[in-house]
Design a protein around this nucleic acid. Structure first.
Length: 741
RNA sequence: GGGCGAUUAGCUCAGUUGGUUAGAGCACUGCAUUUACACUGCAGGUGUCGGGGGUUCGAAUCCCUCAUCGCCCACCA
């Protein structure tokens, strides 16, 4: 008899349980090989001449585990990737991790001190590196597991690591090319020395900390000078004033005067220079070229002497006489005491608020030092032999700064949101030569060898390994951003001219957080411009930061971190993805609220039950035969297509949040609340024509909705898809995005 | 010191080029129902759209100004 319950898969009779299906669904995807575009072409899923869509995953640091911010980033990218794959594009998303030299090394060092009370020197370079690699491997494995849990459709067969062999080759090749072009040089310049981490760091690795300190005014001969750092002042023997400052017109440039100073009398020389601001304090300053970049420039300009006052451990050198060997801050008070005794203190401002430079990773107080380090010259003109950059012709002369500016101003790279272009250009304008050497052990060793006994005069720059025993490699390593700057093309096999490189570069989209615009995005543009004469990506989507519900940052010290896996377990990956993506707009921070995730878990269940209803009501119907649709069903079809069109449009415009909200509204409040409700009576009491029309329509709604929801909620949609009696493909992930004419 | 962003319902946020009675989710209140779905349905309500001024037939939207919060940049000796 026909009164029996129609047969639908049993799982639909109970609520949707993500834990039961997510793992097996991901495994099916992986086993299918469809994450790899080559497989898609091979199996006829993708046309080999199809337009490409490529993303390289911003490589997470191998410093531990991923947090919710990474989940946001993965969800965001995966949604775009799945959308484009369904559009029929040759779609490649490359996974990888970053060795993150300084971050990883300092993490391991801290652990080492804590657990074994040893520092890296106790272990020695070789042993220490083994420890770091072990740690990195463990982090890597955790990270990969986490990324898979989110459902990211990455092509794992192409996985890369910034410190693996292929990437090392790319790094050395770039170094050599830039060295030969004269852009990489070794020189004595003011650098940021971190006495705690015992390495130099770049300007971008400095975090300014606001502190209230004392500001001192000292009598210096006939002048009064101000300083917050008396401990640097021992050998200040140049007095600088503006040439047009009438107060000091009686002094002439080069004139010497005798002054009584910290450790006795001193011959000071008058320097007239525009660098001195007449409106600042007394308009007179003394300079400490060794420990200040500005002072260094003045000294260089006038050919003045420079002396080091503070050593690499932050202690005063013998030049400080009785204060020698003292730590900087301890010496400060004592020096002021002495000056007070000598009657040289004019006044002390007790509440001077200023920004103190500290090292991002170690927290050490950064001391400017003149040191011999490796740099990339960002202003030096060079010839770009081959250029695909709009506005820079092949064979023409350009600079790295120009490349960074032009690629963005020409629109070849579009930045989302656009407002970040302004800060980007501003940063470039103020950019100084990039200090790329680090006194760290973990990282790419600088590919430079010095001939033993040659006093470092004979240099060999080579992408290969050690030539012979007569040569010694530079002990330093490269800034971690040097290798990540190559990421879009090193992951594709460069410097070899691989098929991948030809097929997928420039990449289509890059989706990092805005906080690494300078660190990374700008460096990728620089590196790609120089090495390939093109751009690394066409669009940069800068997502905002994910914050805790109270608006504060997620951080270790606040102990308010949320483990993405816990959330996945509790609500399912789809719910988490949806919650993250529905609130994300380019450049704006968002707050994470677990209640939202729960709401989307309910949404997943709603879909589950919509499916149950539709499968029950359409049991046995043949979807291939399109019936004559009723007027009402034509309307319903129209609304479905409108929804699809809206989503297509907004996904193309990167308004993922609006697209997500749309499908939510549609499925819940239109399909479930209206269409399903009216179907109940219609399917019971309607005419055969009405019934057949509606059955066809319901099934159509289900299949099309699954498709357009799939990029957002890949697991449940795939799970349902595979239970459908009629479907165009075995897997939803390779089904065709519905077209709406 | 320079720059940027935010300010819309109790909370989290949409609101596309200025155009009807300003929208969602969560939370809340009332009612209903054993139903495709209790991970449910229906109903309900609150907004001087941060303040002030201006442009306009019309402003949450454009301009000016102020305020609060947040972020980024910077070599005040």
């Amino acid at each position: 008899m026909h009164d029996e319950q129609p047969h639908i898969p049993e799982k639909f009779l109970k609520p949707y349980n993500p834990a039961e299906s997510e793992e097996s669904v991901y495994k099916q995807w992986e086993d299918s090989g469809y994450f790899n575009p080559d497989v898609c072409i091979e199996k006829g899923v993708t046309d080999k001449d199809a337009e490409y869509f490529s993303i390289v995953l911003p490589p997470p640091n191998v410093t531990g585990t991923l947090h919710l911010g990474h989940a946001l980033e993965s969800s965001l990218q995966d949604t775009f990737v799945r959308f484009n794959r369904m559009l029929g594009k040759r779609t490649l998303w490359i996974p990888g991790t970053d060795h993150a030299a300084i971050a990883t090394q300092s993490k391991v060092e801290k652990e080492l001190i804590k657990r074994e009370k040893k520092n890296r020197h106790d272990l020695g370079r070789e042993e220490f590196l083994i420890r770091v690699q072990e740690f990195a491997q463990k982090s890597h494995d955790t990270i990969v597991t986490q990324i898979k849990k989110i459902g990211a459709s990455l092509d794992w067969s192409r996985e890369a690591f910034t410190l693996d062999k292929t990437r090392a080759n790319a790094v050395r090749t770039v170094f050599k090319n830039m060295y030969n072009a004269g852009l990489i040089y070794r020189g004595n310049r003011t650098v940021n020395w971190d006495p705690k981490g015992q390495t130099v760091i770049s300007d971008d690795e400095i975090v300014y900390e606001e502190r209230t300190e004392k500001f001192y005014y000292f009598k210096y001969g006939p002048f009064v000078i101000g300083t917050a750092r008396p401990e640097t002042k021992f050998s200040d023997k140049y007095v600088v004033m503006h040439p047009d400052d009438e107060r000091y017109s009686k002094y002439t440039h080069g004139q010497t005067i005798e002054v009584e100073w910290i450790n006795g009398p001193l011959t000071a020389t008058i320097i007239k220079d525009e660098a001195s601001d007449p409106d600042m304090g007394t308009g007179v300053m003394t300079i400490t070229p060794w420990h200040s970049a500005v002072d260094f420039d003045i000294a260089k300009k006038h050919g003045l002497e420079m002396e080091q006052i503070i050593d690499q451990y932050g202690k005063l050198l013998p030049i400080a006489e009785e204060f020698a060997g003292m730590k900087v801050l301890a010496a400060r008070e004592k020096i002021v005491e002495k000056l007070q005794e000598k009657g040289l203190v004019e006044k002390i401002d007790e509440t001077y608020v200023h920004n103190v430079p500290t090292a991002e990773r170690s927290g050490g107080l950064v001391e400017p030092q003149v040191m011999r380090q490796w740099f990339i010259d960002v202003n030096k003109p060079f010839t770009l032999p081959h250029s695909e950059i709009n506005g820079i012709a092949s064979g023409s002369e350009t600079t790295l700064k120009e490349i960074m500016h032009t690629t963005v101003t020409s629109g070849q790279i579009s930045v989302l949101p656009e407002r970040f272009e302004k800060t980007y250009h501003h940063w470039i304008n103020n950019l100084r030569d990039w200090n790329i050497s680090r006194q760290l052990w973990y990282g790419h060793r600088i590919p430079v060898w010095y001939k033993k006994g040659s006093n470092e005069k004979e240099i060999l720059v080579s992408p290969d390994t050690l030539p012979d025993e007569n040569w010694e490699q530079d002990p330093d390593t490269l800034d971690t951003w040097f290798s990540s700057g190559l990421w879009t093309f090193s992951t594709l096999g460069w410097p070899a001219n691989t098929d991948d490189l030809k097929a997928y570069h420039p990449t289509s989209l890059m989706a990092p957080g805005y906080e690494i615009l300078f660190f990374w995005v700008a460096r990728m543009i620089l590196m790609t411009g120089f090495n390939l004469g093109t751009v690394p990506f066409k669009t940069v989507y800068l997502h905002g930061m994910l914050r805790a519900k109270d608006g504060r940052k997620f951080s270790k010290s606040l102990n308010n971190g949320v483990d993405p896996l816990e959330i996945v377990e509790k609500y399912g990956a789809d719910a988490l993805r949806f919650a993250l993506v529905v609130g994300v707009t380019p450049g704006n921070d968002m707050k994470f609220d677990e209640a939202q995730v729960n709401a989307y878990k309910k949404f997943a269940n709603k879909l589950w039950n919509i499916t149950r209803f539709i499968l029950t009501e359409t049991s046995g119907h043949d979807h291939a035969a399109v019936p004559t649709l009723t007027v009402r069903d034509k309307e319903v079809l129209e609304a479905l297509n409108e929804t699809t069109a809206f989503m297509t449009e907004h996904l193309k415009k990167h308004r993922i949040d609006l697209a997500a909200d749309k499908i939510y509204q549609y499925l819940w409040h239109e399909v479930a609340d209206v269409i399903l409700e009216e179907s109940k009576s219609l399917l019971k009491d309607g005419s055969d024509i009405e019934k057949i029309s509606r059955q066809w329509m319901l099934y159509e709604i289900l299949t099309q909705s699954l498709k357009i929801l799939h990029p957002f909620m890949p697991f449940i949609t795939e799970e349902i898809w595979q239970s459908l009696p009629h479907k165009e493909s075995d897997m939803l992930m390779i089904a065709q995005w519905p077209s709406t004419k």
